[in-house]
C-alpha cells in the first residue's frame, strides 16, 4: 500500500506491504531504532510511540493506521537538539537504568502531560503504570514524572 504519514514532523511517503507493523517501519525502514521491541504483545510499553498524541504499542499496530496521522517517536522528542524537559527530568531523577523501557516511558509521560498538565500522584501512577520496567523498581520513574510536571510548567513558551 501507499503510505502517507508524518513521523516526528516529517512527511513520509512509502510503499509498504499492508501487513507491515509500525515498529518495523520505524526501526527497519526509517532507522528510528530508539523504539524498542520487548514483549511484542502490547503489555510492556517499550515500543510505545504517540499516534496523534495518544500512546500506542507499535509492536502490534499496523503502519497502515498511521495514514494521514502524526507519529512521534523518541527521536522526535528533543527540541532542536536540546533535551525536552521530560527528558531532563528523567535524567535528574535517575528514572532510567538500562534504558530499554525509557523511550516508552518518556513518550507515555508526554501523552499524560498533554492531556493533563498538572496530574496528581494517582493520575501519574495510573498512566505510567501501563509501562513495565525491570530495572528501576519504578520509584525513580514516578519521581521523574513528577519532576517533568514541574519542569514543563516552568519552561517558558511550552
Amino acid at each position: 500500500m501507499q503510505l502517507q504519514t508524518t513521523i516526528n514532523g516529517k512527511p513520509i511517503q512509502a510503499e509498504v506491504p499492508a501487513e507491515t507493523l509500525l515498529i518495523d517501519l520505524l526501526r527497519d525502514d526509517l532507522d528510528l531504532t530508539g523504539t524498542k521491541r520487548s514483549c511484542d504483545m502490547q503489555i510492556c510499553g517499550s515500543c510505545t510511540v504517540l499516534l496523534d498524541g495518544q500512546p500506542v504499542s507499535s509492536c502490534s499496530l499496523l503502519a497502515y493506521e498511521t495514514q494521514d496521522r502524526q507519529v512521534l517517536t523518541i527521536e522526535g522528542v528533543s527540541l532542536n537538539g536540546s533535551l525536552h524537559p521530560v527528558q531532563t527530568a528523567f535524567l535528574q531523577e535517575y528514572g532510567l537504568q538500562c534504558g530499554f523501557c525509557t523511550p516508552g516511558m518518556v513518550l507515555t509521560t508526554l501523552s499524560l502531560l498533554a492531556e493533563n498538565p498538572n496530574p496528581d500522584e494517582e493520575t501519574i501512577r495510573a498512566h505510567i503504570g501501563s509501562n513495565l520496567c525491570r530495572c528501576t523498581g519504578y520509584y525513580p520513574i514516578v519521581n521523574a514524572v513528577k519532576k517533568s510536571v514541574q519542569l514543563t510548567n516552568n519552561t517558558p513558551g511550552d
Binding site: 502490547q42 503489555i43 510499553g45 510505545t48 499516534l51 495518544q54 500512546p55 500506542v56 504499542s57 499496530l61 493506521e65 507515555t108 501523552s111 495510573a126 498512566h127 503504570g129 501501563s130 509501562n131
Partner: peptide
Amino acid sequence: ESMVANIRVRTV
C-alpha cells in the same frame, strides 16, 4: 473501562 488492559490497548 479505565480498568481494562493498559493505556495503549485502551487507546486502540
